[in-house]
Design a protein around this nucleic acid. Structure first.
Lengths: 201, 201, 201, 201
DNA sequence: AATGAATGAGTCTTCATTCAT
DNA sequence: AATGAATGAAGACTCATTCAT
């Protein structure tokens, strides 16, 4: 038993160290494009050595992927909390998602990076796919809650696409402040929710 | 007069050399993520020297941007041709756009890259913005042609977003062939066209 | 005869073109370390093509050397003018020379460059040596004029060295303006003149 | 304590590695103009990798500067040893300095390079200035030892200038062997010492 | 004689990853 | 388990010089 406890402790410690690395990475990503962040910088920010990072991740891509997966899990949970008591309206769901993207551009950049280009191992691809499906499920649930009766999966795909597309189209709107972009993308989110909604009934 | 002719010739030659570079780049991009393509490879593929490339572009980013802008112009023209005689239906427009993205993933990757991260000069940003606006205009025109009477710009934004989002969500659908992806994304395009259409009347 | 005239004309034209190149180079050197100036820049500044420069100089080093030799000739002539009527005093000679170096740092940089490092052809070395000797002669003449009776050549060497050394020691005196440096180096010139002078009698 | 010891050891090792790099650089500089020596060559000569060099110096200029500063420190110490017991005579000091320059042309080339042209950071300029001042101090001390009572700083400047100028004027004396140059420059050093000396009393 | 596009060897520098301590 | 110095392949970019027009 002691052994188990020890192992649990060790695992906990290992997890918390992992979290420290993730937090350090996120801090850096908040300020700069994640592709330009180096292992050395992450190590420094985390207050540990480069070697230690490789003790937790076999390479940088895995670390990046972990950041992404954690973020995906977070937004998934936020969506879950939203519909904890009663089904979320399409509108609040769309706004929540776009709000999250505004606050976490790195999440969106990584989604774009991994979905379009990154050379992922089969294992990594699998993890990625799982999280994406989880997100999609929430979309589908919300659509069903809004009364959609058929083509629910396909429509969820479409909705997910529509929301994701918002950021790629407006993130770099020239001459706009972050606040401008947030306002504009949230308006688009609401509009898209409305369009999908009106299509249901 | 001769002088003018000579200059025209020179300009033509310059343009064609530029085209050779662009074609070489595109050929390479078709096989690999454009971010991993090197100047040396492009030069080799184009059958010219590295130095010559820098004679036409002051740096790699400018070359990449030119590839993107050319592509954007191409799809813009395709959309124009579509509605040459009578207003394009929403559906054909969406299908044409998504079909293009399937055939030119590099275009989409670059759009994502430049819109989200790339450190662009103000001048480059300006060019990017112009082309994006041109694309948006076509969306708006098609929506108006489909009978949309109000919020036309905003709705065009939403439609553009929805279409762009399709690829980011499905480009790396695991275990699917290119044909699968094309079929699926085209179905989504059609569905989105339908949703926007039904929202109009 | 006509032929000769024509040749003279051509030669004159050639010389003036050469002068244009030299002036362009000098203009650029006034603003930046001459080692960092490129052929392209000189061509642009001169309003001619790169090829034309190579029509007048077989390589960049030759051009640089010509700039240096012209400059050396100029200061030599200035020294001559100084002692046109009566022998220049040691002091005015030293001040004139150091004043010139302050106004023409490129001359000094080039002297340093060619004397210490530059891979010169035998022919170029010969030209360099001739000009340096010409300068030295003026020093010697002035020393003799000041009453020096023996070791005149050697002392001229020493004086020339002492003056040249002033600039290497103070050109980058930190936190000093050009005016400060001029004042200081001129004071040193005067002091050195005094030391050599007092050593004579 | 162990910790301190360990740190001391590490620092020692670091210093010795730094020394290996410096020695490798010096070896190469002895044969060729230091400006033409590449990082690759230094790494090869030192038996280490390119990357390691950048682990000790953030860029080539810093390495070059370090070579210079070390050299400056060396000659400063030699001058100190000279006057360890009794004040050095002006003559021995001048001869020692010029002898050193003959043996270490790179030191002189670098002094010329950094003082006249090099784009140095403020920090680097500061270090350069400090070492130059240290050298100057020795000149001043020797002059005072020789009986100079006034204008000591200014005269030290003049002496330092005079000595430095010797090399720029004769390093490339055409058709002379190294031995010739050494003999000639030492004679000049002695003469300059004499001139300054006779000026004192 | 003038042009200037093309050349390509060669430069410095970066950075993910390894591994001896 | 943690460290961080060492590695070195690889990249973008420069620029004197050539030569066909």
């Amino acid at each position: 038993m002691t052994n188990t406890k020890l192992q649990t402790l060790k695992q906990t410690e290992r997890d918390s160290r992992r979290q420290i690395i993730l937090d350090a990475a996120l801090t850096l990503f908040a300020a700069r494009d994640f592709r330009s962040v180096t292992v050395r910088e992450i190590a420094k920010q985390a207050g540990i050595s480069i070697g230690t990072i490789y003790n937790y991740y076999s390479n940088l891509t895995e670390l990046f992927l972990d950041v992404f997966l954690n973020s995906a899990e977070e937004i998934t949970q936020l969506l879950d909390q939203l519909s904890d008591q009663e089904p979320a309206t399409l509108e609040t769901l769309c706004e929540l998602y776009i709000g999250y993207l505004n606050d976490n551009m790195t999440f969106y950049q990584m989604m774009s990076h991994f979905m379009l280009g990154g050379d992922l191992t089969p294992d990594a691809t699998q993890k990625l796919d799982t999280q994406m499906k989880a997100l999609m499920n929430r979309m589908e649930t919300a659509l069903i809650g809004a009364g959609l009766g058929k083509n629910t999966r396909m429509t969820a795909h479409a909705l997910f696409s529509a929301l994701n597309g918002i950021m790629i189209s407006y993130a770099r709107y020239p001459g706009k402040t972050d606040a401008d972009i947030r306002r504009h993308t949230l308006r688009l989110a609401k509009m898209i929710a409305g369009i999908f909604k009106s299509n249901i009934s």
